[in-house]
Simulated assay, not measured.
Amino acid sequence: MDHINKVALIGGFRAFSGSIIWPFIGFALYKVYGFPLTLVSLFYLVQGVISVIASISGGVITDYLGRKRSMTISISFSSLALLLAYVLNLPIYVMAFTLVQTFLNTVYNVSSTTIVGDLYKGTGDLVKAYSRQRVGINAGWALGPLIGGYVFNFYGFRVLLLVSSLVVLTIIPLVRLLPDFRGSSGLTDFKLSKEFITFLVPTFLTFVIVGQLGFPLLTYYNSVLHFTEFEVGALFTINGVLIVAMQDLIGKFIEGRLRLITLGAAMYGLAYLCVALVSDLLTAALDVVFITLAEMIVTPISQALASTLADPGSRGKQMGVYSMVTGLGRVAGSSISSELMSYYLYSPLDLWGVISLFGFSSALSYFLVLRRLKLR
């Protein structure tokens, strides 16, 4: 089996474990444990702080310990954190251990993203490699929310914690079959170029809107349109199935067309603006198709550009910085949405109109940045 296929398979099981609970964490805090939306918003802000710490330290860990060992450690302790949340099952402990898992997930993501950059060179090959990795990840993502929504609906959120804790352990033997790489620079040597830093600006804006596919959509569809958790889980499954079916093909199409990231970001903005017009499950499913198409264009190009602009000797640390920015974007997206919902939950055009601006702003930023970007 090729190494990229191993990485994709590991990512699939990892994503399956995470996506069983990830879309439902904020919703569970709100509905099951009785936290107000303002506190849920604070939870996502704390996640943002943890993501910053985990991304930077995860980059250092990835360069110092190596990609393989970092992945193994993060997977093992992530399982333990979820198991403790299941056993204790008090609101404060569930919140605390899911935040611990946020840290560990980020370390894993930095390691798995970095190892692809070690294995492949050049933006064309990297776009295809990251596309293949996303096929595996989204195979897990396609199944996880559907099963998670079913279990949540009939057995409760606590059971989800146990299932996720057990599933994630199954991939450790496969991780050990990967080659290992380490950084060659010092622990504090990041070597961030001006080009890399400039690229992070539209990256943050993009991932604010990427972060809407989770708590924000689930809460809006459940509270306003009265979709069940299972129905919203099915919408997330459409996203995963489409990526599994089409990401490789789209990866081949976009490998030499990096400026299509601008189009993808604009599509994100338009698709989330159209959420305000959704009236039933069918139109919600159609809108998810366009959200997914934007994702299939934007994400692999973004990862390939980040890996290309990173210095090979400190790739782990620099991909940690990239992970920090994308993680902050996702968390900021959920936090901003939950705060907006406190005022505009039942004013769809106001709510999703504001959110869509992040997609349109990122499209304009990519257009300006890519005009000056020098790629190797």
Rank of each mutant, 00 (worst) to 15 (best):
L349N: 06
L177G: 00
R330T: 15
F204D: 07
E295T: 05
G59P: 12
A54E: 06
L357T: 14
E255S: 14
Y120G: 09
I172K: 04
G156P: 04
L370C: 07
V49G: 15
V151K: 11
A266Q: 00
Q247V: 06
S74R: 12
G124H: 15
T123D: 11
L146I: 13
L370A: 03
V201T: 08
V110C: 01
Y221W: 09
Q318D: 06
I250M: 12
F16G: 01
N239Y: 10
Q133F: 15
V210L: 06
G66R: 02
A284I: 03
G186D: 10
R158Y: 00
L235I: 09
R176N: 06
L84I: 12
D350P: 11
V46N: 04
S17I: 08
I355S: 13
S314A: 08
T98M: 12
K317N: 07
G66S: 04
G26Q: 06
V94D: 12
G156L: 10
G124N: 14
T203C: 09
L119Y: 14
F207N: 04
R182F: 05
Y64D: 04
R67D: 09
M1N: 06
D180A: 06
P216T: 03
L84W: 00
P202D: 10
G211W: 13
K31A: 01
Y30E: 00
W141V: 03
F190K: 01
G66P: 08
